[in-house]
Simulated scan of single mutants.
Amino acid sequence: MPVEGIYGNVEGLAQFTRALARAGNTGVRDEVKQANFEVADKLTAAAKAKAAGLSRQQRSAAESLRATKTQNYSAIRMGSARKPYALGAEFGAKRLTRTGAIARGFQPWRGNQFDGWNGGPGYFLHPSIREKGQQLIKEYMDKIERLMSEAFPE
């Protein structure tokens, strides 16, 4: 399973879920969907915990994090109409005001196309992915392998 940044692709997962659909095995399909959601939900919880030690704006933005699920993938969504600043709280800002301060109380930029900060992007979500990602991928793959062996015993 190649992992590039924060995106992990489980080769054959879509074919597996289609085979489950053809076999009428909705119970295992639902378990795959739940396994997808659990990864996103655990990352969301880790990011919220990391944001708890940051600025008020970042804590508030982290409250907008939510895990979503489909049969073939899970995702983490951030921001809302009430928290349109969520991405700025996660990545910071490049733009300076006339006084030289970072715009609207954001932290310094930690996004892409930045030279000089080598810790990686983000303040709470992306660092949580870097810290917890490999462990969660292993847990996820163990569960998927178990579900595959239950659905299609040899």
Rank of each mutant, 00 (worst) to 15 (best):
I144F: 06
R98S: 15
S55C: 05
N25E: 14
R18G: 05
Q134I: 14
A21G: 10
G24E: 07
Y7V: 13
F37I: 04
S55H: 05
E139S: 09
P127G: 06
A35I: 01
Y85T: 08
A103Q: 12
L87K: 08
L96F: 05
G79C: 07
A61H: 00
G88D: 06
D142I: 15
A45S: 08
T99P: 01
A47P: 02
K50W: 02
I6M: 12
R104D: 11
R95A: 10
P108K: 07
R22P: 01
E38A: 12
A46P: 02
A81R: 03
Q57L: 13
P127A: 10
A21I: 00
K69M: 13
G88W: 02
D115I: 15
W117E: 15
A52N: 08
E150S: 13
L147H: 03
L96T: 06
F124L: 02
N25T: 11
L136D: 00
K42P: 00
K83I: 07
R146M: 14
K48P: 01
G79W: 01
A46L: 03
N36R: 01
V32G: 00
I6Q: 13
L43W: 01
I102H: 13
G88M: 07
G100L: 09
R66H: 14
K94M: 11
L65A: 06
R29Q: 15
K132M: 13
R104A: 11
A62E: 01
R66K: 15
K33H: 09
A23W: 11
P127C: 08
Y140P: 05
G116T: 07
L96P: 04
K94R: 15
R29W: 07
L13S: 00
G53P: 02
I76G: 04
S74Y: 08
K48T: 01
Q34H: 12
F124P: 02
A103M: 13
E63F: 10
S60F: 07
A86D: 05
Y140Q: 09
M78F: 09
A151E: 07
A23H: 11
A67F: 10
I129N: 04
G88K: 03
E4G: 08
A19P: 00
S64I: 02
N118V: 10
P127S: 08
N112E: 15
G24M: 09
I76C: 03
R146G: 14
A101S: 12
A49I: 11
A75Q: 10
S60Q: 14
K143E: 15
D115M: 12
V32K: 01
L147R: 04
Y7F: 11
E63Q: 12
R56C: 00
G122D: 03
A101P: 03
S80R: 14
I76P: 02
R110K: 15
Y7M: 05
R59K: 15
S128H: 05
M78V: 06
T44Y: 02
T68I: 09
Q71S: 12
A46V: 06
D41S: 15
E145S: 15
Y7I: 11
L65E: 03
M78Q: 10
A14S: 14
Q57C: 01
T44A: 04
K83C: 04
T26L: 12
E150Q: 15
S80E: 14
I76Q: 00
N36C: 04
M141P: 00
N72C: 02
E154L: 11
